[in-house]
Nucleic acid binder design. Structure first.
Lengths: 332, 332
DNA sequence: CTGAAAGCGCTAACAT
DNA sequence: ATGTTAGCGCTTTCAG
């Protein structure tokens, strides 16, 4: 029923090998025969079977992408970067959500390897030992995108989270704040650990007291931002500035403040970490560390293509530059 | 190097057929042999090659998903619904972005069919003739998610956009507004056409004048929402209420108003169409038609599984229920 | 309950 | 420049 390479060969009076050659752009084909074959292909609407091709060549031109949750804007942005570069290099993508669950991650790795992907880009908020072991065991290259591998054994693409957070908090300190809150997402995420470390470090470096009461680590959602503000604002010595781990958190904090009549940035200042599309969609607009998600995804995928081609790469773990976009949630 | 079914067979002293049977859960295997085989599989870390399996069985247990842009929250939500149900039925997903470009959509369909996907879920803002033809030509089932097929020939899952929009505008009319603006995304999107038609229809039905000057169709972004407000607000008879085609648009309109000192909903009222996570992340929070994106994706995928199993389906084009979530951008 | 054997549709030597 | 042939790793009759 479906037309195969044999059908084309027969109709064009050539061998299947020749058809294969023209399909694969092999130059060793006389222009005339090529033309003839191409015509038959068109006429028969022949479409090469990628599965058969994959079995024979041991390459599927598809890569796996494992991310926590595609409906989360942050990961979606990353996925888009991955996909664009994948497309550019003619790879397709098998996308799966892990919900940040180690068991699922492990299963997904296995499933994808079973599907013979040529490589994998993975995004995980915590590289556990098992994950690390699985990755190192993998028959195909795997690169981490926006995910910190503390062992530094796995190829990865990130920014310098510690430095970025350090700078962000320093902006607040520079504006004269002494009581700065640190509101982050789950402390199980390695990145949040880095942000927290940086927060503590600047405070120390600048001679400020670290007050654990000003540190909140929760879900990282909009609502938890509001809640964090509410809890922090009733402290005896309430914070006058907030370092938020994400834009949603920052917006929650701002709305929490505004809902009780406070003014941002006059009464309190907020600096965020992400700079998603949302950063401009609040009043005041967010000052935020720019997390180049798209680029991280794109560079990760690019790195993967090199690894899949067995090209030598100078740098297994690449660190992209970052900057802070100043808007109006912080005075200038 | 990689361990195959033969290796397992040899080590377990059975034929490959038997190994195949245990791997596929075929009951015709003596428990003892099954156990033996399983042990060898474990010991050798045998992982079935899905590509070979796909070639032999003509089933890949993977489905294609074509969406305009995964980094757009709306489509991402849909994709998540698709993926969850796909996972539930043990399918993997090949995800690709079309950027709403007909050429890419056509190419993607072809690529995915070449990869022998068992089915496809597609999201497109306009089902062109070529797309329709391609879909009807497809050797595997294809279902549209949140995409209107005006020919009604293709399986699809949607809500009743016309009715939903009609009701939304009616809320505004019910609040006494005579000058209601209609701000939509690209008029090339079929859905937007429906919203516009509904808008005009209610106005007529309620004896109100349709003023083309109050109708804006643009990119559908946050910025275009602001721009739309700015342009509309300087009209001689400026609108007192806005029907926005999306949450971003609605937020843009609200901020446009607030930036010039207007108060929502006292000075102007806004009703939106989407009810994304953003709807609660503005002040005032958005009243909005709830577009059940996740469900649309999930139901579309579920429908696809039935089609792939050649089960009979009562309804090729399913319409999900909708409702309006009332919050504070509209008075009550 | 188990094995033998014939493909699935294509790539990749190897010939010619 | 083109054809022949042997797999790729597995599913699936068909026997027994």
């Amino acid at each position: 029923m479906t037309v195969t390479i044999y059908d084309v060969a027969r109709e064009a009076n050539v061998s299947m090998a020749t058809v294969s050659r023209v399909v694969n752009g092999n130059q060793n084909v006389k222009p005339a025969t090529r033309k003839k074959v191409l015509e038959v292909i068109e006429r028969l609407e022949y479409r090469p079977n990628a599965v058969a091709r994959g079995l024979a060549s041991k390459k599927t031109t598809t890569v796996g992408v494992i991310i926590p949750d595609i409906s989360n804007n942050l990961y979606a942005e990353l996925a888009r970067g991955i996909e664009d570069i994948a497309t550019m290099y003619r790879y397709n993508i098998i996308l799966a959500n892990s919900d940040q669950n180690e068991g699922k991650e492990l299963t997904l790795l296995d499933t994808m390897l079973g599907k013979q992907v040529d490589g994998i880009v993975m995004m995980t908020d915590k590289v556990t030992e098992k994950i690390q072991a699985s990755i190192e065991h993998s028959p195909v290259p795997i690169v981490l995108a926006g995910s910190v591998d503390e062992s530094n054994e796995i190829a990865s693409v990130n920014i310098d989270y510690f430095k970025a957070a350090y700078e962000a908090v320093k902006v607040l300190i520079g504006n004269g704040h002494k009581r700065i809150a640190c509101v982050l997402g789950p402390d199980t995420f390695t990145v949040n650990q880095y942000k927290l470390d940086a927060y503590k470090k600047v405070l120390e470096d600048e001679g400020l007291q670290v007050d654990e009461a000003l540190i909140v680590s929760d879900e990282g959602t909009y609502d938890s931002g509001i809640t964090a503000y509410e809890e922090l604002s009733v402290l005896e010595e309430a914070p006058t500035a907030f370092f938020a781990g994400s834009d949603e958190l920052a917006i929650g904090i701002i709305h929490g403040a505004q809902d009780t009549g406070k003014h941002v940035p006059d009464d309190i200042e907020v600096i965020s970490f992400e700079n998603s599309k949302l950063a401009r969609m609040v009043r005041p607009q967010l000052s935020s560390v720019v997390l180049p998600l798209y680029d991280i995804g794109a560079v990760a995928m690019r790195l993967l293509t090199k690894l899949m081609n067995k090209e030598s790469v100078e740098q297994q773990s690449v660190i992209l530059p970052h900057r802070i976009e100043m808007r109006n949630s912080v005075k200038r």
